[in-house]
Design a protein around this nucleic acid. Structure first.
Lengths: 265, 265
DNA sequence: CGAGCCGTTGAGGGGATTCAAGCTCAGTGG
DNA sequence: CCACTGAGCTTGAATCCCCTCAACGGCTCG
């Protein structure tokens, strides 16, 4: 239970755990009153995806150290995550799918990663760095904006958080390398089948989000026409059945068969 | 030169730096005697690439906390870094080039990263994980084997090390994403030119290591024949001139021109 | 020396791109 | 209501790039 450093912290009274702060409405509680339970801790505690998210590494008492608001933001499909603002931050994806784009020297864009619910993005903010990639919402998405300063503070008292961060970094690295091996290798058929497999993993298993054809092209380094042809072929083969725009249903058995067929070619 | 490694660690009373240990053979010094300066600290202090390496984050006094031997190992070209052994470890590349291979579901291998002098590889050992990729020496290579347990211990007293580790993780991630955008995108010509550009960066600028054609294929997802044709074309265009087997000299001006030509196609 | 590996080059076929046309569908305004 | 429009998807035809198969030369090594 070490106090969160930095600010000259005035003492408040100790309060029984669980007892809500009796704050007169309109009264502003200064940020440095970290001894009072900040409402954000309550919000985070009730977060439905906390177990998978970064703060899943924090136990109940550690959550109480959160003393700033974590902004929640919604992104419309195609809307970029604006990283402007001098105050660096990390983001947790609460719902939807966002993509990392990176523009090649040629000028065109290449999608290098996808992040679904529970994923942590923008970790480089912790290091004061900016990475070259830009995050854009694929579907409607909901994110939590976690200030880098908050993470840095929690890091001092909570070693588990450091571990969790390293885990995330390694996962991101593994994902990207797997992306390279799976989605950037071999003929178009194989790439598209593998992409569908991944997208099925992002969804609930049967129903999945299908990117635009031009997006598929940017993920797989194919033209949108070839992507379209391959998706059409998968529909003919019974792997996919279209459900509305940008949605589809997948047949696991047919998908497995397609994976095998694409591999031992 | 550094002491071999692994072997039961000799010790003695505090002694002047540089003076050899006068140790009765067979006597084992317990690990918690960290107050004695271990010879490894001297070795690391004199390391010629320490400034770029992981322990560059440690100052002089922190180096003295190193109390185990760090094994130095040489790899012949083509030799894999054997990760067998229950004791996890990280590795710093001191000289040469090593590659990360990852086998696709199809069975063939894809090279997903290159590591040159100063690079840290195998960080996942810190997390008790094993990643899917295997490291193989491209050229003759010299590595330092750093036990994960040592890093974990140093981590407790040296916050700078945690920062350095995160930096490395982010760099690896950035590298891989850039690899994806640069070397796995566009026509064969562009990929090969970009690869040569990277290899020139690994070398001293003019003289560079040229991989085997099949290795190039595994890096760029091309057949070795197309790789060969592209390299031949670069020779014809004056970008490369062969120097021995697996070596070449690059003309920076011609390379820049080739990059431009490949991009605005 | 023959065996094997590596690199190079050629010829032919196949797969992806390019260019192009037509389609559905949503939004708009006459 | 319906033509108009534009964006996204699909499909066709022609071209081109890369792969496949193949042969050959240089080189090292048993």
């Amino acid at each position: 239970m070490s106090p969160p450093a930095v600010a000259p912290r005035p003492a408040g009274r100790l309060r029984a755990p669980g007892a809500p702060a009796a704050t007169p409405p309109g009264r502003v509680v200064p940020l440095y009153r970290a001894d009072e339970r900040h409402p954000q801790a309550q919000v985070c505690r009730r977060c439905t995806i906390r177990s998978e998210a970064l703060f899943g590494a924090l136990d109940e008492t550690a959550l109480d150290r959160i003393h700033v608001h974590i902004a929640e933001l919604m992104l419309a499909p195609g809307e970029p995550l604006s990283r402007r603002g001098d105050d660096a931050a990390l983001y947790t994806v609460r719902a939807g799918v966002v993509r990392a784009e990176r523009s090649t020297t040629r000028g065109d864009r290449r999608i290098v990663r996808l992040a679904g619910a529970g994923a942590l993005i923008g970790q480089e903010a912790l290091l004061g760095r900016r990475s070259d990639d830009e995050w854009v919402a694929c579907t409607a998405a909901q994110l939590c904006r976690i200030p880098a300063s908050l993470v840095r503070e929690l890091l001092r008292s909570e070693p588990a958080l450091g571990q969790a961060l390293m885990q995330r970094w390694q996962s991101a690295l593994d994902d990207t390398e797997a992306w390279l091996a799976d989605l950037a290798t071999g003929p178009a058929r194989r790439r598209v089948v593998r992409l569908v497999q991944r997208l099925a993993g992002l969804g609930d298993g049967r129903h999945l989000w299908l990117p635009r054809r031009s997006e598929m092209g940017a993920m797989l380094d194919l033209t949108l026409e070839t992507a379209s042809r391959q998706i059409s072929a998968l529909r003919r083969d019974g792997v996919l059945t279209a459900v509305g725009p940008g949605g589809a249903e997948v047949s696991p058995a047919a998908l497995a068969a397609a994976l095998r067929a694409a591999d031992d070619a």
